[in-house]
Design a protein around this nucleic acid. Sequence first.
DNA 1: GATGAATGAGGATTCATTCAT
DNA 2: AATGAATGAATCCTCATTCAT
Lengths: 219, 219, 219, 219
Amino acid sequence: MQPPPSPVIPSSGEHDPRATRDRILDAAETLFAERGFDGVAVRDIAARVGLNAASLYNHFPGKQALYEAVLERGLAPLLALVGRIAERGAATEDADQIIATLMAQLGHTPQLPRLIQHEAVRGAENLSQLARRFIRPLFVQGTAAMKQSPDTRHWPESELPLVIAGFMHLLFGHFAMAPLLADVLDEDPLSPEVLARQTRFLQKLTRLLVTPPPKDPKE
Amino acid sequence: MQPPPSPVIPSSGEHDPRATRDRILDAAETLFAERGFDGVAVRDIAARVGLNAASLYNHFPGKQALYEAVLERGLAPLLALVGRIAERGAATEDADQIIATLMAQLGHTPQLPRLIQHEAVRGAENLSQLARRFIRPLFVQGTAAMKQSPDTRHWPESELPLVIAGFMHLLFGHFAMAPLLADVLDEDPLSPEVLARQTRFLQKLTRLLVTPPPKDPKE
Amino acid sequence: MQPPPSPVIPSSGEHDPRATRDRILDAAETLFAERGFDGVAVRDIAARVGLNAASLYNHFPGKQALYEAVLERGLAPLLALVGRIAERGAATEDADQIIATLMAQLGHTPQLPRLIQHEAVRGAENLSQLARRFIRPLFVQGTAAMKQSPDTRHWPESELPLVIAGFMHLLFGHFAMAPLLADVLDEDPLSPEVLARQTRFLQKLTRLLVTPPPKDPKE
Amino acid sequence: MQPPPSPVIPSSGEHDPRATRDRILDAAETLFAERGFDGVAVRDIAARVGLNAASLYNHFPGKQALYEAVLERGLAPLLALVGRIAERGAATEDADQIIATLMAQLGHTPQLPRLIQHEAVRGAENLSQLARRFIRPLFVQGTAAMKQSPDTRHWPESELPLVIAGFMHLLFGHFAMAPLLADVLDEDPLSPEVLARQTRFLQKLTRLLVTPPPKDPKE
DNA sequence: GATGAATGAGGATTCATTCAT
DNA sequence: AATGAATGAATCCTCATTCAT
């Protein structure tokens, strides 16, 4: 089951100037994103940093704490971003901008969405915090914005959360499933080109969402 | 980290008439869906069936094999469904029908999407088979259908795979993230009502997709 | 620090008929008595039984539980003995008999006093149970007996617990300190002869205790 | 198993004038007395002094050495005391005095007896030195004294070591078992009152020992 | 003297798997 | 078909100790 260990990033010099703590977080982020919490051995993280497993415990009190630190570090900028978007009182016109920003940010740390997805699929346990701190505001503010915007007012209120959720699925899904998509697409889903294309796709979709739907003959 | 063990399904009678093999598969499906491959101990699966861990080996050659059997069993009807859809040469008018069918099918085995998502996030390794056998046809036939349909011909060919992928994210995401969404929505995402609503939402979205996008002033 | 591992008792035959559980308890008793809880590695216990450490966990849920089982098993007969003595309403004339019985019993399982002493010195934690279940009744009934007996009535009530405690120290001390005494005496403190001598000594001491003390010139 | 860490003694000022070495010894003495050698981590000792574990190695070459230094420091006054008693050629009349002195001394450093008891129960290994340097002279001179004293001459020579050993058990036991006794007595065994009472009890016992035993009908 | 960081050696415990019954 | 017992390999973590700063 164990995939072959991702190649050790050799510390260029004898003593990497970058704080060991950060290098540990990097290694942990990569591995946790790849295999999930249970799939990663502390020893593997250590090895990736070129450390003895015991040394990790000089920097983090345990595996769980390390995991949470990784989530924390990864989520912070995302939270800030969402916060800033919310503050600005997102008008529909900004939608394109918001999407571009989010995609750019996620594209910058493509492991993060995968990490989050791992957490999300696993369910509540560790996630509840994450849900309350990250997902929840995203939902609350998203629905609020859609309710106020004249363009989206034609969506029934009960559907709004599904729209938001859908956007999350689309946003995160692209990154989280990247290895899978790579198998099917001809290109690397994380390449700048594909990312740009996906951004444009999401923007187009948004624009469609504000279009009043054509009368459904069945309804 | 260990979530509280899901309640044992007590075998109603002394000797459950249902084949032990199936009961094992059920238990394994549930647990693998909840915690992923690495998060589940063979012992837990056995316990859930009321068996000794050693007994599992009378029915499956090992954990990995059991896992694959679970995937196999879960995927088969889905593959069949997708196959049938493809055969019929999906016309756009059937879109509503297709979505309804898929949602119904997935809603019937809500653990399956979660299982797949687990696999998908984890990446290539175990998945490659699955990718080739399930995801790939879905993509190939999906793009083919969209390319031929007059309604969707206005989508640039390079974007078609992203549309398909997006649909997958939306479809699976709703189920896979159910525990997470439950925390944020007021309702159970797997309840018939919400499932119906999500179905309608996806159908509406599809209809939007075939609408030629309004001229973007920026473009 | 680690004393050389006590010699493995080779299982005479290929498969010792005695229940493995008991053999584990025996080994654990010996080692815990020798080195105390913290001084014993589960692996050592297992090795002494000729088992892999993991196998222990088929019989006991953990080290602590094994430890408690050892105490339990060792204490039960002692508790029963003390109970029986108490029931009979110990008259002073029986003192000799009681002492002899206790010494015989302890001499039969000389590791037990050492184990208890280990526990006692370590203090409250694990002991509290033991204290309440074993030591306490011993004290309560001991003091009750002394208070009623005409021979010991001349002891001030406040001193009675000290007398009882003293007896415990003498009783257990002889066994618990056996290795130390062996270094100083010329003989093995656990040999029948020395045990007999110690029994007689304690009996003599008891007889002295019932003797009204000579008037102390200083008092 | 780990008892809650004994409260750190905060160094009142910024730089405790008392030699660090002594503060380490104090902390070590306390912890070793509480939990025994194996139950104490170097880190715990260091923490109790407000030091990094590594710093201990500036003062002691290792855990074992620190342990021995603790024993050494604690035993020295006791050895001196016993030596002085022996020199004076202990006459029986002094017995009260000797007991009082010993009790006073031990009451002053109540951790020491516990430490010794830990060592004693653990058996020979580390102890042999201790035995030869401390216990042995105590025995030799004790027996010598009793043999010469006219009051105790009625004790058979073979019983004398048992008498001495018994006294040790009584003396040390009271301190070593203090936590246990506290659970059973209503009072703190180390309080001045109880210590005084125990002293008086031991003195009374000594006086009884010199009383020729009443003729035992059974003998 | 003090310390943060590193580490090899263990230590308890879990796990997937095997096998005799 | 089921199971109790056994086990080698891991897994997380602790520990005593070292060393450069």
